[in-house]
Protein backbone atom coordinates (compact mmCIF):
# COMPACT_ATOMS: atom_id res chain seq x y z
CA UNK A 1 0.00 0.00 0.00
CA UNK A 2 1.30 3.42 -0.90
CA UNK A 3 2.48 5.80 1.79
CA UNK A 4 0.51 8.62 0.28
CA UNK A 5 -1.96 10.81 2.11
CA UNK A 6 -5.14 8.99 2.85
CA UNK A 7 -7.49 10.86 0.63
CA UNK A 8 -5.63 9.68 -2.39
CA UNK A 9 -5.59 6.03 -1.40
CA UNK A 10 -7.19 4.23 -4.26
CA UNK A 11 -6.90 0.54 -4.44
CA UNK A 12 -7.29 -1.00 -7.82
CA UNK A 13 -9.74 -3.63 -6.68
CA UNK A 14 -12.17 -1.31 -4.97
CA UNK A 15 -14.21 -0.42 -7.99
CA UNK A 16 -14.60 -4.05 -8.87
CA UNK A 17 -15.64 -4.88 -5.36
CA UNK A 18 -18.01 -1.93 -5.20
CA UNK A 19 -19.59 -2.99 -8.43
CA UNK A 20 -19.79 -6.57 -7.33
CA UNK A 21 -21.40 -5.68 -4.01
CA UNK A 22 -23.87 -3.23 -5.38
CA UNK A 23 -25.00 -5.57 -8.08
CA UNK A 24 -24.80 -8.82 -6.22
CA UNK A 25 -28.29 -8.37 -4.90
CA UNK A 26 -29.63 -7.87 -8.39
CA UNK A 27 -31.76 -5.09 -7.05
CA UNK A 28 -30.19 -1.89 -8.27
CA UNK A 29 -31.65 -0.55 -11.45
CA UNK A 30 -28.41 -1.27 -13.07
CA UNK A 31 -27.95 -4.91 -12.63
CA UNK A 32 -27.76 -4.11 -15.73
CA UNK A 33 -30.03 -2.12 -17.89
CA UNK A 34 -29.75 -4.96 -20.34
CA UNK A 35 -31.94 -7.10 -18.12
CA UNK A 36 -34.33 -4.26 -17.69
CA UNK A 37 -34.49 -3.65 -21.41
CA UNK A 38 -34.38 -6.90 -23.27
CA UNK A 39 -34.71 -5.14 -26.59
CA UNK A 40 -32.65 -2.18 -27.64
CA UNK A 41 -35.64 0.13 -27.50
CA UNK A 42 -37.31 1.61 -24.47
CA UNK A 43 -41.05 1.13 -23.95
CA UNK A 44 -43.54 2.09 -21.27
CA UNK A 45 -43.22 -1.26 -19.49
CA UNK A 46 -39.51 -0.69 -19.13
CA UNK A 47 -40.16 2.71 -17.55
CA UNK A 48 -42.61 1.20 -15.06
CA UNK A 49 -40.07 -1.42 -14.15
CA UNK A 50 -37.46 1.30 -13.76
CA UNK A 51 -39.70 3.11 -11.30
CA UNK A 52 -40.02 -0.06 -9.23
CA UNK A 53 -36.28 -0.49 -9.22
CA UNK A 54 -35.69 3.05 -8.06
CA UNK A 55 -38.15 2.53 -5.23
CA UNK A 56 -36.66 -0.79 -4.16
CA UNK A 57 -33.27 0.87 -4.12
CA UNK A 58 -34.46 3.09 -1.24
CA UNK A 59 -34.32 6.20 -3.35
CA UNK A 60 -37.51 7.31 -1.67
CA UNK A 61 -40.84 8.38 -3.11
CA UNK A 62 -39.85 12.02 -3.68
CA UNK A 63 -36.65 11.45 -5.60
CA UNK A 64 -38.19 8.61 -7.60
CA UNK A 65 -41.17 10.70 -8.60
CA UNK A 66 -38.90 13.52 -9.71
CA UNK A 67 -36.63 11.31 -11.75
CA UNK A 68 -39.50 9.45 -13.35
CA UNK A 69 -41.36 12.62 -14.30
CA UNK A 70 -38.29 13.82 -16.12
CA UNK A 71 -37.63 10.51 -17.84
CA UNK A 72 -41.28 10.16 -18.73
CA UNK A 73 -41.45 13.56 -20.37
CA UNK A 74 -38.28 12.87 -22.33
CA UNK A 75 -39.75 9.54 -23.37
CA UNK A 76 -43.05 11.09 -24.39
CA UNK A 77 -41.19 13.71 -26.36
CA UNK A 78 -39.35 10.98 -28.20
CA UNK A 79 -35.96 11.91 -26.83
CA UNK A 80 -35.41 8.57 -25.15
CA UNK A 81 -35.75 5.62 -27.43
CA UNK A 82 -32.68 3.52 -26.80
CA UNK A 83 -31.15 1.94 -23.76
CA UNK A 84 -28.05 4.04 -24.19
CA UNK A 85 -30.04 7.28 -24.07
CA UNK A 86 -31.96 6.18 -21.02
CA UNK A 87 -28.75 5.30 -19.19
CA UNK A 88 -27.23 8.66 -20.01
CA UNK A 89 -30.32 10.57 -18.95
CA UNK A 90 -30.29 8.78 -15.62
CA UNK A 91 -26.58 8.99 -15.07
CA UNK A 92 -26.05 12.69 -15.63
CA UNK A 93 -28.36 14.03 -12.90
CA UNK A 94 -27.19 11.39 -10.44
CA UNK A 95 -23.60 12.30 -11.01
CA UNK A 96 -24.44 15.98 -10.53
CA UNK A 97 -25.97 15.30 -7.15
CA UNK A 98 -23.12 13.10 -5.96
CA UNK A 99 -20.32 15.33 -7.22
CA UNK A 100 -21.47 18.03 -4.84
CA UNK A 101 -20.94 15.81 -1.85
CA UNK A 102 -17.68 14.28 -3.02
CA UNK A 103 -15.31 16.06 -0.68
CA UNK A 104 -12.72 13.73 0.85
CA UNK A 105 -11.62 14.28 4.41
CA UNK A 106 -8.42 16.27 4.71
CA UNK A 107 -6.67 15.42 7.95
CA UNK A 108 -3.56 17.56 7.61
CA UNK A 109 -2.97 20.10 10.37
CA UNK A 110 -0.21 22.54 11.17
CA UNK A 111 -0.01 21.58 14.81
CA UNK A 112 -1.97 19.52 17.28
CA UNK A 113 -3.98 16.39 16.58
CA UNK A 114 -6.76 16.26 13.99
CA UNK A 115 -9.83 15.29 15.98
CA UNK A 116 -12.44 13.09 14.34
CA UNK A 117 -15.66 12.57 16.31
CA UNK A 118 -17.78 9.65 15.15
CA UNK A 119 -21.50 9.43 15.90
CA UNK A 120 -24.54 7.45 14.78
CA UNK A 121 -27.52 5.35 15.82
CA UNK A 122 -27.06 1.90 17.33
CA UNK A 123 -25.64 -0.82 15.15
CA UNK A 124 -24.59 1.17 12.09
CA UNK A 125 -20.96 0.12 12.44
CA UNK A 126 -19.29 3.08 14.18
CA UNK A 127 -16.69 1.09 16.06
CA UNK A 128 -15.89 -1.10 13.07
CA UNK A 129 -15.53 1.97 10.86
CA UNK A 130 -13.16 3.53 13.38
CA UNK A 131 -11.08 0.35 13.45
CA UNK A 132 -10.81 0.37 9.69
CA UNK A 133 -10.04 4.10 9.51
CA UNK A 134 -7.29 3.67 12.10
CA UNK A 135 -5.75 1.00 9.92
CA UNK A 136 -5.95 3.17 6.82
CA UNK A 137 -4.34 6.17 8.45
CA UNK A 138 -1.60 4.09 10.06
CA UNK A 139 -0.84 2.56 6.69
CA UNK A 140 -0.74 6.02 5.17
CA UNK A 141 1.93 7.02 7.67
CA UNK A 142 -0.03 8.90 10.32
CA UNK A 143 0.15 8.31 14.05
CA UNK A 144 -3.31 7.56 15.37
CA UNK A 145 -4.98 7.37 18.78
CA UNK A 146 -8.47 6.09 19.56
CA UNK A 147 -10.81 7.24 22.33
CA UNK A 148 -13.25 4.61 23.59
CA UNK A 149 -16.19 6.95 24.08
CA UNK A 150 -18.90 4.28 23.95
CA UNK A 151 -19.12 3.77 27.66
CA UNK A 152 -22.70 2.51 27.52
CA UNK A 153 -22.91 -0.62 25.39
CA UNK A 154 -21.49 -3.73 26.99
CA UNK A 155 -18.28 -4.81 25.29
CA UNK A 156 -17.84 -1.64 23.23
CA UNK A 157 -14.64 -0.57 24.99
CA UNK A 158 -13.19 -4.07 24.56
CA UNK A 159 -14.18 -4.07 20.89
CA UNK A 160 -12.31 -0.83 20.22
CA UNK A 161 -9.34 -1.96 22.33
CA UNK A 162 -9.04 -5.08 20.20
CA UNK A 163 -9.07 -2.97 17.04
CA UNK A 164 -6.33 -0.85 18.60
CA UNK A 165 -4.22 -3.89 19.44
CA UNK A 166 -4.60 -5.29 15.94
CA UNK A 167 -3.31 -2.08 14.42
CA UNK A 168 -0.79 -1.15 17.06
CA UNK A 169 -2.71 2.00 17.92
CA UNK A 170 -3.07 3.29 21.50
CA UNK A 171 -6.61 3.38 22.88
CA UNK A 172 -7.66 5.73 25.67
CA UNK A 173 -10.40 4.12 27.73
CA UNK A 174 -12.04 4.50 31.10
CA UNK A 175 -14.33 2.04 32.77
CA UNK A 176 -17.69 1.17 31.27
CA UNK A 177 -20.29 3.65 32.45
CA UNK A 178 -17.78 6.51 32.66
CA UNK A 179 -18.66 9.97 31.37
CA UNK A 180 -18.09 9.98 27.61
CA UNK A 181 -17.10 13.63 27.65
CA UNK A 182 -14.43 12.95 30.24
CA UNK A 183 -12.98 10.15 28.09
CA UNK A 184 -12.84 12.57 25.17
CA UNK A 185 -11.14 15.28 27.23
CA UNK A 186 -8.63 12.84 28.61
CA UNK A 187 -7.92 11.41 25.16
CA UNK A 188 -7.29 14.83 23.67
CA UNK A 189 -4.83 15.72 26.42
CA UNK A 190 -2.90 12.52 25.82
CA UNK A 191 -3.01 12.80 22.06
CA UNK A 192 -1.66 16.35 22.23
CA UNK A 193 1.06 15.36 24.71
CA UNK A 194 2.19 12.49 22.53
CA UNK A 195 2.11 14.55 19.37
CA UNK A 196 -0.36 12.20 17.68
CA UNK A 197 -1.56 13.20 14.19
CA UNK A 198 -5.13 11.93 14.35
CA UNK A 199 -7.43 11.28 17.30
CA UNK A 200 -10.58 9.31 16.49
CA UNK A 201 -13.26 9.47 19.16
CA UNK A 202 -15.93 6.75 19.31
CA UNK A 203 -19.31 7.48 20.87
CA UNK A 204 -22.18 5.29 22.03
CA UNK A 205 -24.89 4.54 19.51
CA UNK A 206 -27.97 6.62 20.17
CA UNK A 207 -31.33 6.89 18.51
CA UNK A 208 -31.77 10.36 17.11
CA UNK A 209 -35.13 10.66 18.82
CA UNK A 210 -33.62 10.56 22.31
CA UNK A 211 -33.24 14.22 23.24
CA UNK A 212 -31.12 13.69 26.32
CA UNK A 213 -28.68 11.40 24.52
CA UNK A 214 -28.30 13.94 21.74
CA UNK A 215 -27.57 16.49 24.45
CA UNK A 216 -24.87 14.21 25.81
CA UNK A 217 -23.29 14.02 22.37
CA UNK A 218 -23.33 17.80 22.07
CA UNK A 219 -21.50 17.90 25.39
CA UNK A 220 -18.78 15.53 24.13
CA UNK A 221 -18.30 17.84 21.19
CA UNK A 222 -18.16 20.92 23.41
CA UNK A 223 -15.64 19.35 25.74
CA UNK A 224 -13.38 18.40 22.82
CA UNK A 225 -13.33 22.09 21.97
CA UNK A 226 -12.06 23.06 25.41
CA UNK A 227 -8.40 22.32 24.82
CA UNK A 228 -8.40 23.24 21.16
CA UNK A 229 -11.15 25.61 20.05
CA UNK A 230 -11.10 24.24 16.53
CA UNK A 231 -11.71 20.64 17.66
CA UNK A 232 -13.40 18.42 16.63
CA UNK A 233 -12.22 19.09 13.11
CA UNK A 234 -14.66 16.56 11.75
CA UNK A 235 -17.97 15.46 13.21
CA UNK A 236 -18.90 12.45 11.18
CA UNK A 237 -22.19 10.59 11.14
CA UNK A 238 -22.13 6.92 10.25
CA UNK A 239 -25.24 5.73 8.41
CA UNK A 240 -26.23 2.17 7.59
CA UNK A 241 -27.09 1.88 3.89
CA UNK A 242 -29.76 -0.73 4.53
CA UNK A 243 -31.75 1.85 6.48
CA UNK A 244 -34.61 3.20 4.48
CA UNK A 245 -36.04 6.68 4.57
CA UNK A 246 -35.15 6.88 8.23
CA UNK A 247 -31.50 7.56 7.34
CA UNK A 248 -32.52 11.02 6.28
CA UNK A 249 -34.29 11.59 9.55
CA UNK A 250 -31.16 10.47 11.38
CA UNK A 251 -28.91 12.81 9.42
CA UNK A 252 -31.26 15.71 10.06
CA UNK A 253 -31.53 15.17 13.80
CA UNK A 254 -27.82 14.66 14.32
CA UNK A 255 -27.05 17.69 12.20
CA UNK A 256 -29.43 19.83 14.24
CA UNK A 257 -28.03 18.64 17.55
CA UNK A 258 -24.31 18.60 16.94
CA UNK A 259 -23.64 20.09 13.52
CA UNK A 260 -22.21 17.45 11.21
CA UNK A 261 -19.36 18.03 8.81
CA UNK A 262 -19.36 14.68 7.03
CA UNK A 263 -20.94 11.29 6.53
CA UNK A 264 -19.83 7.72 6.12
CA UNK A 265 -22.19 5.19 4.60
CA UNK A 266 -21.63 1.59 5.67
CA UNK A 267 -22.99 -1.80 4.64
CA UNK A 268 -23.44 -0.91 0.99
CA UNK A 269 -22.95 -4.60 0.38
CA UNK A 270 -26.46 -5.22 1.64
CA UNK A 271 -28.80 -5.80 -1.19
CA UNK A 272 -31.03 -2.81 -1.69
CA UNK A 273 -28.19 -0.47 -0.86
CA UNK A 274 -27.39 2.71 -2.63
CA UNK A 275 -30.50 4.81 -3.01
CA UNK A 276 -30.20 6.25 0.43
CA UNK A 277 -26.90 7.84 -0.58
CA UNK A 278 -28.75 9.93 -3.15
CA UNK A 279 -31.53 10.89 -0.80
CA UNK A 280 -29.08 12.18 1.81
CA UNK A 281 -26.80 13.84 -0.71
CA UNK A 282 -29.67 15.70 -2.26
CA UNK A 283 -31.39 16.82 0.90
CA UNK A 284 -28.51 17.45 3.24
CA UNK A 285 -25.63 18.32 0.95
CA UNK A 286 -23.18 17.04 3.57
CA UNK A 287 -19.87 15.70 2.25
CA UNK A 288 -19.77 11.91 2.01
CA UNK A 289 -16.31 10.92 3.22
CA UNK A 290 -16.16 7.15 3.10
CA UNK A 291 -18.28 4.25 1.96
CA UNK A 292 -18.09 0.66 3.16
CA UNK A 293 -18.88 -2.31 0.97
CA UNK A 294 -17.79 -5.25 3.10
CA UNK A 295 -16.27 -6.60 6.25
CA UNK A 296 -12.60 -6.41 5.29
CA UNK A 297 -10.52 -3.35 6.15
CA UNK A 298 -9.94 -2.51 2.52
CA UNK A 299 -13.69 -2.57 1.91
CA UNK A 300 -13.92 0.92 3.41
CA UNK A 301 -12.74 3.58 1.01
CA UNK A 302 -12.95 7.23 0.12
CA UNK A 303 -16.21 8.15 -1.62
CA UNK A 304 -15.81 8.88 -5.30
CA UNK A 305 -18.94 10.04 -7.13
CA UNK A 306 -17.87 8.91 -10.54
CA UNK A 307 -16.80 5.48 -9.42
CA UNK A 308 -20.02 5.08 -7.51
CA UNK A 309 -22.25 5.97 -10.44
CA UNK A 310 -20.10 3.96 -12.82
CA UNK A 311 -20.45 0.93 -10.61
CA UNK A 312 -24.20 1.33 -10.79
CA UNK A 313 -24.35 1.65 -14.54
CA UNK A 314 -21.72 -0.75 -15.68
Amino acid sequence: MAKSKSNTIKQPGFLTRLRASLNRGNSWLTYDLRNLLPGETVDQDALDELESRLLTADLGVDATTRIMERVQSLFDGGRITTREQLANELKAPMLDVLRQVERPLDVTRESGPFVLLVAGVNGVGKTTTIGKLARKYVDAGYSVMLAAGDTFRAGAVEQLTQWGERNGVPVVAQSSGADAASVAYDAYARAAARGVDILIADTAGRLHTQGNLMGELAKVKRVLGKQDTSAPHETMLVVDATTGGNALSQARSFHESVGLTGLTVTKLDGTAAGGVVFAIAETMGLPIRFIGVGEATEDLDVFDAERFVDALFK
Partner: peptide
Protein backbone atom coordinates in the same frame (compact mmCIF):
# COMPACT_ATOMS: atom_id res chain seq x y z
CA UNK B 1 -34.57 -7.09 12.47
CA UNK B 2 -34.04 -3.36 12.87
CA UNK B 3 -37.33 -1.43 12.56
CA UNK B 4 -35.46 1.21 10.58
CA UNK B 5 -34.60 -1.17 7.73
CA UNK B 6 -35.61 0.06 4.31
CA UNK B 7 -36.46 -1.85 1.16
CA UNK B 8 -33.68 -4.28 1.96
CA UNK B 9 -35.96 -5.86 4.56
CA UNK B 10 -37.64 -7.81 1.78
CA UNK B 11 -34.43 -9.36 0.46
CA UNK B 12 -32.97 -10.01 3.89
Amino acid sequence: VDAMTGQDAANT
